[in-house]
Amino acid sequence: MSPTAPTLNRFGVALLAEWRKLTSTALWWVLGVGMAAYLAFMGAVLAFTFAAAPPSPDTPAITGVDAALAVLGTLNAIGYVFPLLVGTLLVTTEVRHRTLTQSLLVEPRRGVLLGAKLVVAAAVGLLYGVLGVVGLLATSAPVLELVGDGIFLTDPAVLRVLGLGILVTGLWAVLGAAFGAVVPNQVAAIVAVLAFTQFVEPIARLGLSAVDSLSGVAAFLPGAAADAVVGASLFGEISGGGGDLLPGWAGALVLLAYAAVLTVVGRWTTFARDVA
């Protein structure tokens, strides 16, 4: 009767369990489809804007591969709230629905549980990146082909922007999971994510870049760091290239550093507490 004490690869089975937890509710595909649809819509709007923009004397028209890059480079800037949310929910949903007890019964090592969540967040984030790319291409490619100069899908610069966009989407999801570990209250976490991404950071970036001595600081905000990784930014386009960005690799490191700090804080707060 006593089970032939299976010696399990604890991290491996924890990953599988996390993946099953994620995919056994509707949230992940609803958010994923939402991201693809939203990017498809924005892709169409942007492609038309660039392709059909009347030439004006002060802003030179964006044409050729530049138009394709400008559209495809928005994956991160427009879509990042989706991976951020799915990552956050990966942690907070366990607290909200009190499934954390069962999760810790099968894996009492809390670091293993949190670590598995971060890895699965990265995986689902990368998947969202691919979904976002599919959404963007689904509308912008036909529009640019028909009305503009084409989508240039085989151009190395275009491929690079898409690849980095997917990568940074994965990083956003990891950041989200780490944030969820620090703010386990689901409602508070969602409000905080939306407020930060939609209001706080955009205003902070504008505000900081307006003050000369602080303009360097703006580059270290998470959104700016993510833009740096991709090397293109809607924010940059709108404000006329405003705000200096870090080098791409440094942007990635800044995002990882945020995730690391949040993970450590979450591990020693939420994940260290009594589960009663």
Binding site: R10, R20, S24, T25, R98
Partner: peptide
């Protein structure tokens, strides 16, 4: 101990089965 309301009974069990 909670269950996620959006998960099926079987989904709940299979999520914890690997561990």
């Amino acid at each position: 101990t909670g269950f996620h309301p959006g998960r099926t009974g079987l989904g709940h069990l299979t999520a914890y089965a690997p561990q």
